[in-house]
Design a binder for these strands. Structure first.
Lengths: 329, 329
DNA sequence: CATTTGAATGAAATCCATTTCATATGGAGA
DNA sequence: TCTCCATATGAAATGGATTTCATTCAAATG
C-alpha cells in the first residue's frame, strides 16, 4: 500500500494524496474520495519515505551517563512527558559514563537522524565544548551550565552555600565536606566552592581544608568519613554531596558511637527515599529533576520551531529538607 | 554528498559504490579508488535512504511503564548494554502506567519503524495478548510470563514461597502479607499465591486470609500495615511485596513500639539500597533486573537474526538476602 | 575444445513520499 | 474588458540509497 495505489483507487494523482495528507489545496470532492479510500485500505504513509524527503525525523536524541540512576531517570521522565505530548520519539543513548561515547553519539545523532539533542552531562571536556559549538542541529545541555549554550541546570552553588550556613547557624565550627571529583563541574566544583566560601565568609577559613572526595556509593561514604575524621580529628558537622554518601557516613559514625545529631550534624543531597528512612533521618536538598527535564525539552522545541531566538540558560532552584540529622532536641 | 557524486569522482557506477559499502564483488582497483574518494570527501551514506530501501532501521523500540523506577531503569541498562554493543539504537516509549498507551506505541513501532520491540510489562489485558500475537515483528516481553510469547521473567512464585518458608521455619505462625493489585500478574498474583500456598502447605491455612493490597510507596506500606494489624490482631511476621512497602510497615511498627525482629519479623523485596539502611535492615529478595534486560535483548536479536527458532520463555532466579529484620539474636 | 561457473560491472528499477513546475479556472479589482 | 490572484490539479523531479538484470571476461571442469 503506497501513495500511488491510493491515488489510483481514488482516481487522483500522487500529488493530490500528498496534499490530502499535508492539508494542501484540494477540492472537497477529491478530499472526500481520498478520505474514503484511505479509510477502506487502512493506508498509512511510509514514515521513512517522508523522512527521506523532508529531513524531519520527529525524533529527539537523548544522551545520558547512565539510565539506572535516580536523578537521570527522573530527568528522563520529564523530558519524555513533554516530547511525548508533542508527538516526538526519543532515541536513547546511554554512555555508561564514558565521555568519549558522548561525542560519538553526538556524531551519530547529527548524521541525519534526529531533529535535536538533549545531553545530560556530568563531565564536559574542552573537546565537548568545541564539538557542541560546531553543531548545527539544536541542542540543550542538562545538569551543567555552559555559557552560550542552551542549558538547564541546578543552583548547586547556592544550595550548598545555604546548606552550609544552616549548619553554621546551629553553632558548628568544625565542619567537614565529602564531595566529588572536580571533573564534574556542577557536583564536584560548584558545591565544594560553595562550602568553602560559606565557611570562609563565616570567618572559619581553616574549615575549607576539611574536604575529601568520594564516589557516589554508600561504602565510599563510609570510607571517606573515616578518612576525614582520622585526618582532622573530631568534627561537629559533616556535609555530604549526595544522600548515599551521607548514609555511608552515618553508618561509620554509628559504628564509632558518634551520635547524630547530638555530637555531629549530617547532611546529604538528593531527597531520595534513602535519606528519609535512616535513623536519624538525614537533612537533604531536593532538586527538581523532572522539571529540569521538562524545561530542557521545551527549550529544545523552542529552538526547533522558532528561529532567531536568544540562547537561554535556565537555573533551577532547590529546597532544603531539614530532617532529624540537623535538629538538636 | 550522495552516492552518485562519489561514484562519479571515483569513475565508477552507483552500484559499485554500494557494493563497496556492502562488501559485494568489487575489484581491488575500484575498491581502492572508492576508498580514497570516500576518505577525501568524508562521505557517509544516508541512513534514511538505506532504511527506505532495506527496511532495516537498526532500531529497537522499548515500551515501559515508567522510566523513573528502580527496576525498570535497571532492566533498561541491561537492554542497552547488549543492543549498544551490536550497533542498535533504542527508541524509548514511556507509557506512564497507561496500558492503552502500550498498545498505541506497539502500533506506532510496528508501522515501519523498528526491527523489534521489548515490552516491559506490568498489566497485560486480553487485548494486549491478541495484539501481541498478531504482530509480525519480533517482540520480547519482560517481567511477565506469557505462554507462547518470548519472554523473560522472574521466579516470583518460588521467591515468595521460599521467603515465606524461611519465616515459617523461624517458628512464626501468625503471618500477614501486604501485596499488590492482581492486575499485575507477576507481582500481584504470583507472589500472593506463593504466600498462600506456603502457609497452607505448612498447615496454617487461616494465615492465607491475612492479606491486604498496597501501592508501591512507603506511606501506603505504613497505612496497610496498620490496616492489617488492626484487622487481624498482633501477628508475628509481615511479608511485603516491595522494599518500600516494608519500610512503611517498619515505620508503623516502630510508632507502635513493636520491635523488629524480636516481636515481629519483616521482609521486603527488591534489594534496593533502602532495605539496607533502615534500623533494623530488612530481609529482602534480589532479582536480576539488569540481567533480565540483557537476556531480553539477546532473545530479540536471536529472533531477528535466525529464523524458525523455537519460542523461548526464560525464568530467572533470585537471591534471598537475609538482613536483621528476620534474624533473632 | 566446449561448457559451466564465478567474479566484476553498470544501467535501470525500486523503495515511497514531497515538492516544483506548468497549466487551468473562476472571481475580484482596475 | 483586462489583469491579477487564489484555488485546483497532475506530471515529473527529487531525496539517496540497494538490488535486479543483463553482460562480459576469465578460469575451471569435463
Amino acid at each position: 500500500m503506497n501513495i500511488s495505489e491510493i491515488a489510483e483507487l481514488a482516481g487522483v494523482s500522487n500529488a493530490a494524496v500528498s496534499r490530502y495528507l499535508n492539508h494542501g489545496y484540494l477540492s472537497e470532492e477529491k478530499r472526500e474520495a481520498i478520505r474514503k479510500v484511505i479509510e477502506e485500505t487502512g493506508y498509512r504513509p511510509s514514515i521513512q519515505a517522508q523522512i527521506l524527503r523532508t529531513r524531519k525525523t520527529k525524533t529527539i536524541g537523548v544522551i545520558l551517563p547512565r539510565i539506572d540512576s535516580y536523578s537521570v531517570s527522573n530527568v528522563m521522565a520529564g523530558i519524555d512527558s513533554v516530547l511525548e505530548a508533542r508527538g516526538f520519539q526519543i532515541l536513547l543513548a546511554d554512555t555508561h559514563n564514558n565521555p568519549d561515547k558522548e561525542l560519538e553519539y553526538l556524531e551519530i545523532f547529527d548524521h541525519q537522524h534526529v531533529d535535536g539533542v538533549i545531553l545530560i552531562a556530568t563531565v564536559l571536556t574542552q573537546k565537548h565544548m568545541s564539538v557542541i559549538k560546531k553543531r548545527k542541529a539544536p541542542i540543550v545541555v542538562v545538569g551543567q551550565q555552559l555559557a552560550g549554550i542552551p542549558c538547564v541546570y541546578h543552583d548547586d552553588y547556592h544550595a550548598f552555600y545555604d546548606l552550609t550556613n544552616l549548619i553554621l547557624q546551629k553553632g558548628c565550627c568544625k565542619l567537614g565536606y565529602i564531595g566529588a571529583l572536580a571533573q564534574d563541574r556542577a557536583v564536584g566544583q560548584e558545591r565544594r566552592r560553595a562550602y568553602c566560601d560559606a565557611v570562609k565568609d563565616a570567618g572559619l577559613p581553616a574549615q575549607a581544608e576539611h574536604t575529601v572526595i568520594a564516589e557516589f556509593t554508600i561504602s565510599s561514604g563510609r570510607e571517606k568519613a573515616q578518612e576525614l575524621l582520622e585526618a582532622y580529628g573530631t568534627l561537629d558537622a559533616l556535609i555530604c554531596t549526595t544522600d548515599r554518601i551521607a548514609v555511608g557516613a552515618l553508618q561509620y559514625l554509628k559504628s564509632k558511637n558518634i551520635q547524630v545529631p547530638r555530637q555531629m550534624l549530617l547532611t546529604g543531597h538528593g531527597a531520595a527515599d534513602i535519606s528519609s528512612v535512616t535513623a536519624p533521618t538525614i537533612t537533604t536538598v531536593r532538586y527538581f529533576y523532572e522539571e529540569s527535564g521538562e524545561e530542557a525539552a521545551k527549550l529544545l522545541l523552542d529552538q526547533m520551531e522558532k528561529d532567531n531566538i536568544p540562547v537561554k540558560e535556565v537555573k533551577l532552584g532547590y529546597t532544603i529538607i531539614e530532617n532529624e540529622s540537623t535538629v538538636l532536641k
